[in-house]
């Protein structure tokens, strides 16, 4: 129902733009096959990382700042979780690194193709005009008012900024704080841990950035639902939105 309402709006509001687009653009899918495949491999890997990360925490739900930390030393904070030894952290670690491999490999594939096809530059890099304070404020206010987004073939400035931050800032930070906990990797690149000021600081930051990414995932799902769950899911699975000749 809402979907058809949106479609109606978009067709009337954006008809002049559609005319300007070639039929090739109209026929091209909203998401390329590579984006769709890496998106779903990454989704499974991310779920694996969250589950296994939680399992690992159960072995020692205490967090510290600096180089070291253990029972009997001052903690930064502790999670109200039971301590479970000899189990979850074993399969948790196996699962965590396997999921991390799939996440990193599919993420790399996505990033390389995103540069090669200029996906990042064309669809994610905000226009200079959109980065003005007035334009940003308008977009933030639209979101705060839960203004229903009009059906468009491009992302708005807040979407662009948050996708760019997640792809190029937070996921790389997850990898680096993870590397900082590896005694073998830091023997080759001590910088990975010294830049954070210690292995326990890196562990704590790894936890916080993970929380932030889970929050991003929840907002991402909420936005997909607001924009029309069925059509967005269809777009990410088949590439098509199924809306006839619309360009979204």
């Amino acid at each position: 129902m809402l979907g058809s309402l949106n479609r109606g709006m978009s067709e009337s509001a954006y008809a002049p733009r559609l005319v300007l687009q070639s039929t090739e653009v109209l026929d091209s899918p909203r998401h390329s096959a590579l984006v769709r495949i890496t998106h779903w491999i990454f989704t499974l890997s991310f779920i694996g990382l969250v589950i296994s990360g939680f399992a690992i925490i159960l072995a020692h739900p205490h967090f510290y700042w600096g180089e070291t930390g253990a029972i009997g030393t001052p903690t930064l904070f502790s999670l109200p979780l039971p301590t479970m030894l000899g189990g979850p952290s074993g399969w948790g670690r196996y699962m965590h690194f396997q999921s991390a491999w799939f996440a990193v490999l599919s993420g790399l594939l996505y990033a390389i193709s995103g540069f090669l096809t200029q996906h990042f530059r064309k669809r994610l890099l905000p226009a200079r005009a959109d980065l003005s304070w007035g334009s940003l404020r308008a977009s933030i206010l639209d979101h705060l008012r839960f203004k229903r987004p009009v059906e468009e073939d491009s992302y708005n400035v807040l979407q662009r900024l948050s996708y760019l931050a997640v792809i190029f800032l937070f996921f790389p930070l997850m990898i680096v704080t993870g590397f900082a906990m590896s005694p073998a990797i830091t023997s080759v690149f001590p910088f990975f841990v010294t830049v954070f000021g210690g292995q326990q600081t890196a562990r704590t930051l790894h936890f916080f950035i993970a929380d932030f990414l889970v929050l991003f995932l929840l907002v991402h799902i909420a936005m997909v639902m607001l924009a029309g769950f069925k059509s967005r899911m269809r777009a990410m699975i088949t590439g098509r939105t199924g809306g006839g000749k619309q360009a979204s």
Partner: peptide, 26 residues
């Protein structure tokens, strides 16, 4: 089931990292 990740981690570290890199000393 975890053999893929385990092998990737071990093989990559053995291939790409020096066998003589030293852990940090304090």
């Amino acid at each position: 089931i975890w053999g893929v990740g385990e092998t990737l981690t071990y093989a990559t570290q053995r291939l790409l990292m020096s066998h003589h890199s030293l852990a940090r000393e304090f």
